[in-house]
Amino acid sequence: MAHQISVFAENKPGRIEKITRLLSEEKVNIRAITISSANGFGVIKILPDQPKKGYDILRSNNIPTYLQEVIAVIIPDIPGGLHQISFVLNKYNLNIEDAYGFVVESGKKAVLVLQVENQPQAQEILKHNGFQLLSDEEIYRF
């Protein structure tokens, strides 16, 4: 399974710089990143090549960080590619809580990262419907 790390950060200059610096110093590569912010703070979601290492680095610097399993699935980079996934999840009445993606081969392949309620069930359903789920190592191989 793939893992992402979520990081709490104050909505202030220099906070993201600190996080990316700590990761880069320890040679942790970031495959994808997304930031959502609320009233004065934000949560940064990072998909790194070495999730456990990235998590340990940030936690040992006393930064609130959470390591969690996510679903990373290959979809074709064509119109309707994303719809194939949402169609299946909807059929089984599974709600998508958060999602982001990145293209690995333009016009051919993209990776969609999903947080879904009832993650184990969603994994089974996607596999059953012929989707290829990626591990941390596999994400990085692209």
């Binding site: 790390i5 979520s6 912010s37 609320a38 934000g42 949560v43 960080t65 959470y66």
Partner: peptide, 15 residues
Amino acid sequence: EIIPELFFGDLLRLE
């Protein structure tokens, strides 16, 4: 201060 052990990566929960 947010306590790291009780942070679960969830923006909504913090709000």
